[in-house]
């Protein structure tokens, strides 16, 4: 019997989100309708002419790739692409402001963030959903992402290829169920280990983990089915091995990892994390290293119970540890360990 096969299957069932809930879908559709109905008018007031039918919504992120996991706050990514001449509309902050204005109603809280406009939804004072809307301009075959916060001096139209990124990741993940599960497990590990994080930049981004997982994925199966424990251990070990030594400004050796986007603009997805503080990289390395150590122990120990305890250290308490193997006469005698 494959070690922890059932526990991994149960864990995946517990954390996976197969599709949008109707509650989310309804919010998203209303939001998209608001953008399509109001944005052209707002833009027109600023001498930018687009038709409703020119606005294109692009499904992005984990919902697109089927790697969403349950979390306290639902995180949805939908790109908004509009035809725009950025040589004329050179300030992306203004265009993001128009997008914000098109959706800014009391039912949602809207914020301009560096890479997107975020619409957040609250229930009894607690945020339960945010929909991130990266804004892209399109002119011919040239696509650019609007970057920069509303009042930041650091802003740009960054060359981008959202469709290409979707194609790349869907090509990697679709039809590979074990990879999809492994990505979910790694994201769950990240959520558990960074539960107390106070800023986004200290947390390894989902896109980074997803790309690394795709790069380092090691499919593992036997006649008894997929061995997710071994696949997870090998994939995370592969990710760990991607870290390299670099020298910081003090001349100290630090571990860092880079992963460029596979499409335009081919930038490093961990750049913000590194720029924020090199210590974040060290933490990332140490936590990943500890996870690999625990998973390696889980692979090597004979007892499923002990292996489960190691895995629980990685994936959190949602992962069930199987009961200790029968050693007493009682345990041998009982048909199954279940409560009355």
């Amino acid at each position: 019997m494959l070690k922890l096969k059932k526990e991994f299957a149960d864990f995946y069932k517990e954390i996976k989100i197969d599709k949008e809930t109707n509650a989310l879908k309804e919010k998203r559709e209303i939001l998209e309708e608001d953008i399509k109905s109001k944005l052209p008018t707002i833009l027109k007031n600023h001498n930018i002419s687009i038709a409703r039918s020119d606005i294109r919504m692009i499904d992005q992120g984990s919902y697109k790739y089927g790697t969403t996991i349950s979390d306290d706050v639902v995180d949805r990514d939908v790109a908004v692409m509009i035809p725009l001449d950025i040589s004329i509309s050179s300030d992306p902050r203004k265009i993001k402001g128009y997008l914000r204005d098109s959706i800014n109603i009391p039912a949602r809280t809207v914020l301009i963030k560096e890479p997107c406009v975020r619409a957040s939804y609250y229930d009894n004072g607690e945020e339960w959903l945010h929909i991130d809307l990266p804004l892209y301009s399109q002119s011919g075959t040239s696509v650019h992402l609007a970057r920069g916060k509303e009042f930041s001096s650091d802003y740009s139209w960054e060359s981008a290829d959202p469709d290409g990124l979707n194609d790349y990741l869907c090509g990697q993940i679709n039809g590979n169920d074990q990879l999809r599960r492994i990505i979910c497990f790694i994201k769950k590990w990240r959520n558990v280990k960074y539960e107390g994080a106070t800023s986004d930049h200290e947390v390894p981004p989902s896109i980074g983990l997803t790309l690394l997982a795709c790069d380092c994925f090691s499919a593992q199966s036997t006649d008894e089915g997929d061995n997710d424990l071994l696949a997870l251990q090998k994939t995370m070990k592969g990710m760990l091995d991607r870290f390299t030594y670099t020298v910081d400004e003090n001349g100290d050796l630090v571990k860092t990892i880079s992963r460029d986007l596979p499409v335009t603009p081919y930038t490093d997805v961990f750049k913000k994390m590194k720029d924020s503080s090199i210590a974040h990289m060290t933490t990332f390395y140490n936590r990943l290293s500890k996870a690999v150590e625990n998973l390696t122990n889980a692979v090597n120990v004979e007892s499923a119970h002990d292996a489960g305890e190691y895995v629980q250290k990685v994936l959190g308490s949602t992962f069930s540890v199987p009961a200790k193997e029968a050693v007493a006469a009682t345990a041998q005698n009982r048909r199954e360990h279940s409560f009355g």
Partner: peptide
């Protein structure tokens, strides 16, 4: 019937 994080019913029921 209208779960926020998890959909508990299928599309036909909804």
């Amino acid at each position: 019937v209208f779960g926020k994080r998890i959909e508990h019913i299928d599309d036909d029921t909804y």
